[in-house]
């Protein structure tokens, strides 16, 4: 017997410690970032005062600034980031592709088109998130209709997703070119992603739906794990692969569309977060799905703070920051994975 025990076994205890440490760090970071976001701004407020104001105590002026201006924006960033992180995690596993993300599926394009169309129609600011939500879901429906042919095969899904995305992006592009200059600016602003100017009703609505979708994703995680085994093995284990893939895709699309409704199509969070999480916690589990949400929330909130306070330029989209921050990480992590040792088994 060649039971040569190779190197590389990660002991379970060590892995669990790493997951716990990562979770604790993430939660602490989220708390610190949230506090910073509530305290800083044109009028700086001490941390304790800000936290009291958040629950409605203290000086009415502070309460107004914190509750009405700062908190919705921060919570929107957290909710959207959580959705994007989880959506990216589910999609990359469903598509068995490290580059899968809402952009690849047309969700981003659909959300952009929905929002830009409403901007063009002169709809009020409050309707635009709904337009984005509808656009994202519509794009996913389009993808499903084109890609479904007695089941959902992965390759066909990826290619069709690219096609849907390209077509929708062209439509957005057309509108931006045809618009008068001021409208083109606000449309472009929207399509790069920003959490500026969110209000409580929007944030609460999206947050509630997001919690439901995240719960569904966690409940169905077992199906996702079985799907990872490939269609033949999953089928032999009694899973209806097409149905399961459809359910999970719907969840991922809802997560991504809700995020897009709040923050616009922010790139890179959905793409980079799963890689970061996998790097830290190893093989994907239900816990890593939850961690992806946490990491996404931290990343987006941090990026939004950078946009607001660290950069000298007004009105920069948060998407540009997530891309700049996320890209080097992503490249390093992906190149680590595509090392020859790993790929020879593929």
């Amino acid at each position: 017997m060649t039971s040569v025990v190779r190197k590389g076994a990660t002991s379970r205890a060590r892995l669990r410690r790493r997951v716990l440490a990562f979770t604790a760090t993430g939660a602490a970071a989220l708390f610190v970032l949230l506090t910073v976001s509530l305290t800083t701004g044109e009028m700086s407020i001490p941390a304790t005062t800000a936290l009291r104001a958040l629950v409605g105590l203290g000086d009415p002026g502070d309460v107004l600034v914190v509750q009405q201006f700062r908190a919705p924006r921060s919570v929107a960033a957290i909710v959207a980031g959580a959705g994007l992180g989880a959506a990216g995690c589910v999609l990359q596993r469903l598509f068995r592709n490290p580059l899968a993300s809402p952009d690849v599926m047309g969700v981003t394009g659909g959300a952009s088109l929905g929002a830009v169309a409403l901007i063009a129609a002169g709809a009020s600011q409050t309707l635009i998130p709904l337009g984005a939500l509808g656009g994202g879901l519509l794009a996913a429906l389009l993808l499903g209709v084109f890609a479904w042919r007695s089941g959902l095969a992965v390759t066909r899904l990826v290619l069709t997703g690219l096609a849907v995305q390209a077509g929708l992006a062209a439509a957005v592009n057309l509108m931006i070119v045809r618009f008068p200059a001021e409208l083109a600016g606000s449309a472009l602003q929207w399509t790069t992603g920003s959490v500026y100017g969110r209000t409580w009703p929007e944030v609460w609505g999206a947050a509630g739906a997001m919690v439901l979708a995240l719960t569904a994703a966690l409940v169905l995680h077992r199906r996702l794990a079985v799907l990872d085994l490939g269609d033949d093995s999953a089928g032999a284990l009694g899973l209806n692969t097409s149905t399961a893939r459809l359910q999970l895709m719907v969840i991922a699309v809802v997560l991504a569309s809700l995020a897009a409704a709040l923050a616009g199509p922010v790139t890179f969070v959905a793409l980079a977060v799963p890689h970061i999480v996998r790097f830290v916690t190893g093989p994907p589990t239900a816990a890593s799905l939850a961690l992806a949400s946490l990491t996404g929330a931290v990343l987006l909130l941090a990026s939004d703070l950078v946009v607001q306070h660290l950069l000298p330029i007004e009105g920069l989209p948060v998407g540009a920051v997530t891309a700049t921050l996320g890209a080097p990480w992503l490249l390093v992590l992906m190149f680590r994975q595509s090392s020859p040792v790993q790929r020879s088994h593929a």
Partner: peptide
């Protein structure tokens, strides 16, 4: 069933 070329999920133990 054990398929001919099963897909091993990444990094799974």
């Amino acid at each position: 069933l054990l398929p001919q070329q099963p897909v091993t999920p990444e990094a799974i133990t």
